[in-house]
Design a protein around this nucleic acid. Structure first.
Lengths: 113, 113
DNA sequence: TAGGAATATTCGAATGTATTAATATCAATT
DNA sequence: AATTGATATTAATACATTCGAATATTCCTA
């Protein structure tokens, strides 16, 4: 049982373990977006984004609703946003040591982080 | 820059994306443990655990200190524990739907979750 | 109902990750 | 300095993930 739980947790983290999927969740932070809107904002291949969305769907991190021609995605549980926020705190505390990005970080507009 | 940040975040999540590594962090929750103690508690191959520890070290999720013959590990930043706790809340909210574990879950002693 | 727009799926090649077995390193002890 | 105990590293194999290209599906509208 413990192990099943940990596999479940690991699966969620695995779903978060890609820059594009993180970008998607961050874009969905403030509300729904259509697949097309995501593709445009990400500036990536349609198929690629669609595949990443499939991963997020499979792990149930997002929910989707069809509206005619389009599919709108949203973050399924706001706890996930809390997790991302907590991690952001973590990243800010450790990015400097981990990479040599301290100067760049300080110059980065708030909105970007 | 944005992208570098997301790669960094994804890397951290990647480090968390394995049941054994989650188990290690959970074992380290309440204090340091030697590699040997971890190996014993996990009941896994020495080399395997050591490699997972290497991943956690590489991503700086744990710190280690040598004490003679042994190496003691600890969670480097308590925020990580908070993240795991948040995730636990998440799992409890969604485990039932995600897997068919509801019965097992209800039978599981509190201490295990 | 044919065509077009939006999205999803499948396939293959490249790359990355996990595991085991074998070996190496390092510190303590004799 | 040789041996032992604790931990780390390397190498090989198996398995999973990612990506782009091509194709399929679904819904809308002419």
């Amino acid at each position: 049982m413990q192990d099943a739980l940990r596999r479940f947790k690991a699966d969620i983290f695995q779903a978060l373990a890609h820059p594009t999927r993180i970008a998607i969740l961050e874009l969905l932070r403030d509300g729904d977006l259509s697949a097309g809107a995501l593709i445009e904002k990400l500036g990536m291949e349609q198929a690629n984004v669609s595949q990443h969305l499939a991963v997020l769907r499979a792990k149930q991190l997002v929910s989707n609703r069809k509206a005619g021609n389009q599919v709108f995605y949203s973050v399924r549980d706001p706890i996930l946003i809390d997790v991302l926020d907590l991690m952001r705190t973590y990243f800010h505390a450790h990015l400097k040591e981990s990479l040599g990005m301290l100067d760049e970080l300080d110059k980065t507009p708030e909105a970007v982080r």
